[in-house]
């Protein structure tokens, strides 16, 4: 998932979403309080899908996912046009620095903390101290501006066709899906999440001793055609890197995952998201006596032990098993 979530300024509660998102980022990066972060994210998603402008904290309270505290913050924002907590956060230079540093891919809250402790408080300063960084972080820093830019849908479509063309030439049976917000039909995305599978590649073949070079070959092929320009990390099942369509386009973050065929659809479902939709989906699965993750859907036994993965041949199958009305990717907000 990209560092930046696409924010949509067409919705009537756009400004609330903005400050709540900022608070969420603060909780995630600075205080590292994942629960507060989730609470704010949840509130944002509820407000974003609310069709009308919220006019008071009490009105907001009625929505699922907004409690007393967030309602109060909305009230404060409505009355004063600002938020004391946010002001305080902004006035604290450490917070700002941490928030800034975590925008670099490969730098998480912990690394940002330690960098700030060492006195590095901005991207500019970081560029002078690349010795403290890993390869991943250095590449992230090099393309910092590019990676911050949103990728227009049309560009991903072009990249998709390049990948398809290259890989189908390699092996016609390869299945390629670009997930993430792109698949959900969003106009722009933060990065490109690509899932690849092959019918002959199943999970029972994964543990075998001999190394699997499939992903390496795929990446090499994409490098040769000039699409992939940087490698952040490359294992047997996951590639993280960057690609560039042509000289006119910025460098884009590209992830490629090689997924066993039997786990492919669960994985697509997971990586298509959104994260809130995934949560909903998993909760529903538990209610129906299943457990769902990015690998498999399994029935839960009487003692709570998950059963063997059920056979799945499409995303619809997963919905069908769980007796959940199918939602197209575009509807999974």
């Amino acid at each position: 998932m990209g560092k930046r979530k696409a924010s949509d300024d067409t919705n009537p509660n756009h400004d609330f979403c903005e400050f709540l998102s900022e608070l969420a980022e603060y909780e995630k990066n600075v205080t590292r309080d994942i629960h507060r972060y989730s609470a704010y994210r949840k509130a944002v998603s509820v407000l974003a899908s609310h069709p009308t402008r919220i006019t008071s904290g009490d009105e907001a309270r009625k929505l699922k996912g907004i409690g007393e505290k967030i309602a109060k913050k909305i009230d404060e924002f409505l009355q004063t046009g600002k938020l004391r907590k946010l002001e305080a956060i902004h006035s604290d230079s450490t917070n700002a620095a941490i928030n800034e540093l975590t925008r670099v891919t490969g730098i998480g809250p912990a690394k940002a903390h330690s960098l700030v402790k060492e006195g590095i408080t901005s991207i500019e300063e970081l560029r002078k101290h690349t010795d403290k960084l890993t390869h991943h972080q250095i590449v992230g820093l090099r393309h910092f501006e590019d990676f911050e830019k949103k990728i227009p849908r049309q560009e991903i479509e072009q990249i998709e066709s390049v990948i398809n063309k290259e890989l189908k030439a390699m092996d016609h049976d390869l299945k390629i899906t670009i997930c993430g917000s792109y698949r959900r039909g969003k106009a722009e995305s933060g990065d490109i999440d690509t899932l690849i599978t092959h019918p002959n590649f199943t999970s029972d073949k994964v543990d075998k001793k001999h190394k699997n070079n499939m992903l390496k070959n795929i990446v090499t092929a994409l490098e040769k055609c000039g699409l992939v320009t940087e490698t952040l990390s490359l294992g047997e099942s996951k590639f993280m890197g960057a690609c560039k369509l042509d000289l006119e386009h910025p460098t884009r973050r590209l992830d490629i995952r090689l997924i066993p065929y039997d786990q492919y659809y669960c994985c697509i479902l997971y990586f298509t998201g959104s994260d809130m939709f995934n949560k909903e989906m998993r909760t529903h699965a538990l209610e129906k006596g299943f457990t769902l993750n990015e690998y498999a859907l399994r029935p839960v036994g009487v003692t709570g032990v998950p059963g063997e993965p059920v056979e799945i041949h499409s995303e619809e199958d997963i919905f069908d098993y769980m007796d959940f009305p199918y939602k197209k990717p575009e509807e999974r907000g």
Binding site: T303, V305, G307
Partner: peptide, 16 residues
């Protein structure tokens, strides 16, 4: 002691 799972829930029929 409680029952222990020997064979996890295994699928015999698809929903269809």
């Amino acid at each position: 002691e409680d029952y222990k799972v020997l064979l996890v829930a295994s699928s015999f029929m698809t929903p269809l």
